[in-house]
Design a binder for these strands. Sequence first.
DNA 1: AATGAATGAGGTTTCATTCAT
DNA 2: TATGAATGAAACCTCATTCAT
Lengths: 198, 198, 198, 198
Amino acid sequence: MPKVVDHDARRRDFIEAAYQTIVEEGLARTTIRAVAKRAGYTTGALVHYFADKEELIAHVLEENGKLVRERMQHAERELKGRAALRQVLLEALPLNRRQHSSWRIWLALWYHSESSEAMRKEERRRYREWLGRISAILRESIDLGELPAGTDVDARARLLVAMVDGLGVQFLMAGGRMSARKLTALVDGALDELFGTG
Amino acid sequence: MPKVVDHDARRRDFIEAAYQTIVEEGLARTTIRAVAKRAGYTTGALVHYFADKEELIAHVLEENGKLVRERMQHAERELKGRAALRQVLLEALPLNRRQHSSWRIWLALWYHSESSEAMRKEERRRYREWLGRISAILRESIDLGELPAGTDVDARARLLVAMVDGLGVQFLMAGGRMSARKLTALVDGALDELFGTG
Amino acid sequence: MPKVVDHDARRRDFIEAAYQTIVEEGLARTTIRAVAKRAGYTTGALVHYFADKEELIAHVLEENGKLVRERMQHAERELKGRAALRQVLLEALPLNRRQHSSWRIWLALWYHSESSEAMRKEERRRYREWLGRISAILRESIDLGELPAGTDVDARARLLVAMVDGLGVQFLMAGGRMSARKLTALVDGALDELFGTG
Amino acid sequence: MPKVVDHDARRRDFIEAAYQTIVEEGLARTTIRAVAKRAGYTTGALVHYFADKEELIAHVLEENGKLVRERMQHAERELKGRAALRQVLLEALPLNRRQHSSWRIWLALWYHSESSEAMRKEERRRYREWLGRISAILRESIDLGELPAGTDVDARARLLVAMVDGLGVQFLMAGGRMSARKLTALVDGALDELFGTG
DNA sequence: AATGAATGAGGTTTCATTCAT
DNA sequence: TATGAATGAAACCTCATTCAT
């Protein structure tokens, strides 16, 4: 019998180590040595689980997507219409530690997407999900009578996603000079306007 | 007798070469060798003008900011109120070749801002300018009667900047799947709403 | 009770797998992982049967020698004198798939012989066999009256072996630009001369 | 002014170091580290002159070809007909230190030719030269009346080249058990037969 | 007997930086 | 000032070998 090792658990270890390294050091400084060391193994061990660096990074992206998705789905399950929309948008912003990490990944994604097919692919998937999710909630809001029937759902969804992406960047770049409260207020202001409650 | 050299002109050569290299190859592939070669000099020459790579990059960022500023100022000189706002927002989006280049720089900025003080500093300057410019136009619109007097100028400005940043990223990531026309329509839709002309 | 395993059969599996890998990938790319995988086992299993890589390779060489020997012996059993000589020489050339494989092994042997005692040893054995075989057939030809009694058997044998080795290399390097027919014609021309039938 | 360096001389240094390393250690152990060290530089320096390992090796092959060519041409200038042929054949055999080195290169060439286009190309060039040279001398011998007019020059040339290649390998593999005198005697025996003087 | 995870040395390559000229 | 050769650290990747199970 082989040395008893939970192969999947070990893979998760490396993915988690890579995730944390990207978040803390940036993708450029995320070397396989650094990842392996953080995970408590040697570089050679990492290669057992991921053929090369690119494959490892791809898994990190996938993992990040999965985490975000779960948080969003949770918000949708609990709430409806405007309340759900608000929760999903806030959940996407870098207000807490987990989301802050996801944002570091996204910035890396945006930056590298011009030179990496894997990155582009992942980023497109992210947008597709985002737009689909927001659109669904908007249609729900229409059904609930919160929004007028003639609302251009697709355009609205794109503008909301843009707002979140843009506010997220602003918040990150402010480096503590913008409060979470202010960020939330901006989102609520936009929602007030959208739902005609301003 | 010292060799007569236009020190500033030479510096601009290197900055321009670095700018083009970042835009075309990405910051990761922007080696000082590549920059020096593109400028028509050797690595050793570059070192005379910039202490290290980071200093060179910082100057590229500054240069990029200057270029964008000039385009914006031009738009402001020619137009007023809503028309000026529209022009400034469109000017910021990656619709033409020049703006596309600036966006490549910004993505690099965002990505590296966590690990580079120079990047953070430049990015904060960019936001300050952006917000100041938009706020000024919004106030102008209020004066012109295009917007109600009670408009929260600061919040509006932040949301507009966020929209532009977010839409810019969406457009870049779409990689040709989103038309310039559609992007413009999204901005116009947002302006219609803001100015109550939807 | 120990697990019942046909030790020799398992060893042959590995040797055969290594043989095929060398032939198809070259000795440089013949990693023990690749061999083990091709054999349907893991690297750890291979180690049970061969102390290290060199020992495995040595067995491949031995196996290859055995295969060639069998083909030659078959030719000798069926034919006599010049006819046997012709058959043995042609059997040695890389005209068919099996022989092509042996030639890949020999080229590896020649190349590595300077740095590997095992290789040198195997190669010397190959020559000893070759020369003994050819010499025996030449003496047979003398007995049959096909060759004059004064023939310098040893020199003749060495020149014939050299011819085969040299032609084999030419054929392999030509990479399809030399036909099997032409190769055969060259051998027949040499035999015509040797046996005074040109 | 730059550091004064004879660029071509430096390249030759590296090529010579690589040549010696291949000869003494074999191509497999010819690492760029080893080559650079032997040349007295660091690995980084080597990269200034050769983009990668393959390019360096290609130059070694070319250099080797040049050396052999020069020796052959010298033999041809001084002698005619059979005497020239004898000299060229002996010059090709690994009888002296210089030729011994060339043979190590050729064995590497043969071995790696299946997996390297550069190797195949170089080897084909070697054969073309070889055959052309021998054919020319054979035609000269016909003109001189040393050989009958009907001699099949092409077939003869191929057999002579094969003989030399085969004898060279035998000699190398014998590892000192075959004397230079014996090797020369074998060649002379073959020439006696060819020129009808046996 | 067999597994296959893990090690760690060693390979090629890239590149910011230094420095003799 | 300018050159560009040279350094040397660090990156990714490969792989024979070891060893706990």
